[in-house]
């Protein structure tokens, strides 16, 4: 028998993933209200519209679960329990997060097909790129090409002209993904992940600080209002949940700090190219470099 440790902590992919998803629930509930119940109550959508956010978000998680089951049972002939197969990777969490990030106007069929293919392929190409960012970029491009554009604005928001204040963004009135707009709930989720040690805190903190600094300078320089720059396009959510993906981000302290700053700087750079895709492209590039960053910064 090999030397080993004969007791193990309770921490596992399952506990990490479940904690992160549970902390996401308040935002999801708010997102369902904002993009489903509220629209239905004010006759901006029908019954299908009422359930669309639920279908997109939890459907994403189901696709993640399905991918794990198919891969483990069919390709790996695993004999493990269903629970351990479901949480053999972070794919359920990935599906849920991508669902939260989606626009309510997304074509559901396109979304599910790309999500399934993307997550499934990622099972074979292990730890290479941030799969959430890649899938979002593909969906965005295909939605824009095939269905005439990608917009976060829901039926209610498009019917009126809004001028959002700081507190509007904080309580989730801003425009964004289905369940990503409520900043107070996001801060609570971040705090929860920090307390339970289920997040790469340096990445979220440094990337958010970097974009705040860069956009502040840009705002002063160009007289562009600062608040919408920060709170629009899910930047804070993406820095908290997508950039901190365990598998494809740096793991050393120095590495996570540099990784966070690279994400922030690239996001700012790509903002001028495409503000919606900017964070995803930034994370995609940084995730490709994650091993290199860890190696270089810890060489000494």
């Amino acid at each position: 028998m090999k030397n080993n440790v004969y007791v193990r902590s309770n921490r596992s992919i399952q506990t990490i993933s479940l904690t992160r998803m549970v902390l996401l629930l308040p935002m999801i509930i708010y997102g369902i209200y904002k993009n489903g119940i509220y629209l239905y109550m004010h006759h901006y959508c029908g019954v299908m519209g009422l359930f669309k956010p639920i279908i997109i978000i939890f459907g994403g998680a189901l696709i993640g679960a399905l991918v794990n089951i198919i891969y483990e049972y069919i390709f790996k002939h695993s004999k493990d329990s269903l629970l351990s197969i479901l949480f053999s990777s972070f794919h359920i969490e990935y599906g849920l997060i991508i669902g939260c990030l989606m626009s309510i106007n997304i074509n559901v069929y396109l979304y599910f097909i790309i999500l399934f293919i993307g997550l499934f392929i990622s099972k074979f190409v292990k730890n290479r790129v941030n799969i959430m960012a890649l899938i979002f970029i593909i969906i965005y491009i295909l939605q824009s090409k095939m269905f005439g554009g990608f917009s976060y604005i829901n039926a209610y928001e498009s019917s009126k002209v809004f001028s959002y204040e700081f507190m509007d963004y904080m309580i989730g009135r801003g425009v964004g993904g289905i369940a990503t707009t409520h900043i107070i709930l996001l801060i609570i989720a971040l705090f929860g992940m920090y307390v339970t040690n289920n997040n790469k805190n340096h990445i979220s903190l440094v990337s958010i600080l970097t974009i705040i600094l860069l956009f502040a300078f840009y705002s002063i320089y160009s007289n562009h209002p600062f608040i919408p720059l920060i709170f629009a396009y899910n930047y804070l959510f993406i820095c908290s949940y997508v950039a901190t993906d365990f598998v494809t981000s740096c793991y050393t302290v120095k590495g996570t700090i540099l990784y966070g700053s690279i994400v922030g700087i690239l996001l700012f750079g790509f903002y001028f190219l495409n503000p919606i895709l900017a964070p995803y492209i930034a994370i995609l590039i940084a995730s490709v470099l994650n091993n290199l960053i860890d190696r270089k910064v810890n060489k000494s």
Binding site: Y6, R8, R11, F246, T248, C250, Y251
Partner: peptide, 15 residues
Amino acid sequence: DNSKESLCINCGLCN
């Protein structure tokens, strides 16, 4: 102990 070794998830806890 029946715990099975799986792929590293890069969490950085060991470090």
